[in-house]
């Protein structure tokens, strides 16, 4: 065994070159890559830890928020329940008041209907009375009652006040035609002459008097000179009575009292 020192030297150089080459191509790249990877992994671990901490914090916040929400929900529920109770009571009161008002209205309507019925009953009774009177007067108009009426009419002409008499005269003066006297039944000649005389005496002498009949008068006489009229008739009395009856019924309502009209009222 011998050592070839040239070879030894060459091997030393070879070894040193190999050390340099492996350092260049093996150790440094590998250790650098591992260091980079470790750093990267450490970074990602740190990031993961941060993210986890953040997520846990958010979860904690969320939990707190949820608890608050739960608490506030109870509160809101309680408030809503109270509000609903109040509203229910209010609505009940309103309903009760409305029912009361409706009941009152209904009672009023009932009262009105009753009053109305009573008023109509009274009105119809009144008219019925008037009709009966009118029929009675008509039935008796043909008797000497007509003569009585003529006498009464003559009295009224005699007792006319100055103003009415003046108006009558003026009307006769303006009119060219005769004075017309209407009666419900034909007048007897004596009655006619009595009336003609009274007209000549109290209004205008020598004026022509025309006689006619009119059923509307029922019982009585009507003097028409131009536009002026002097009338004494049961029809007019009954008309007045009817008007008065209607006024009393409408005015006094249900508290109206029965009143008997005075048929002898003069105009």
């Amino acid at each position: 065994m011998e050592i070839d020192w040239l070879t030894v030297a060459a091997q030393i150089i070879n070894f040193l070159v190999l050390v340099w080459l492996l350092q260049r191509f093996l150790y440094r790249p590998i250790t650098d890559a591992m260091a980079r990877r470790e750093e990267r992994i450490a970074t990602r671990l740190a990031e993961a830890k941060d993210a986890r901490a953040k997520v846990e914090a958010e979860a904690e916040q969320l939990r707190e928020k949820q608890e608050k929400l739960e608490a506030s929900r109870e509160e809101v529920l309680r408030e809503v329940r109270e509000e609903a109770n109040d509203m229910r009571k209010e609505m009940e009161n309103d309903l009760r008041e409305e029912m009361e008002a409706r009941r009152k209205t209904w009672e009023d309507h009932l009262e009105e209907a009753r009053d109305d019925f009573a008023a109509r009953l009274r009105q119809r009774a009144g008219h019925q009375v008037i009709d009966i009177v009118r029929r009675v007067l008509k039935d008796y108009a043909g008797s000497d009652l007509a003569g009585q009426v003529a006498g009464t009419f003559v009295d009224r002409l005699a007792n006319l006040d100055d103003e009415a008499r003046g108006k009558l005269k003026a009307a006769v003066g303006r009119s060219d035609g005769p004075v017309r006297v209407e009666s419900s039944v034909p007048l007897k000649p004596a009655a006619r002459s009595q009336i003609t005389r009274a007209i000549h005496e109290h209004i205008v002498p020598d004026i022509e008097v025309e006689y006619g009949e009119n059923d509307d008068l029922l019982l009585g006489l009507r003097l028409m000179a131009g536009e002026q009229t002097v009338e004494w008739s049961a029809s007019r009395f009954l008309g007045r009575l009817e008007t008065t009856l209607d006024e009393v019924i409408e005015g006094s309502g249900r508290r109206s009292t029965e009143r008997r009209p005075d048929s002898a009222e003069s105009n």
């Binding site: 065994m1 011998e2 050592i3 070839d4 020192w5 070879t7 091997q11 030393i12 070894f15 040193l16």
Partner: peptide, 15 residues
């Protein structure tokens, strides 16, 4: 194998 040479092993030992 170069390690079978005393020259190589000597060189490594010297290193």
């Amino acid at each position: 194998p170069p390690t079978g040479s005393l020259s190589t092993t000597a060189a490594l030992a010297i290193c």
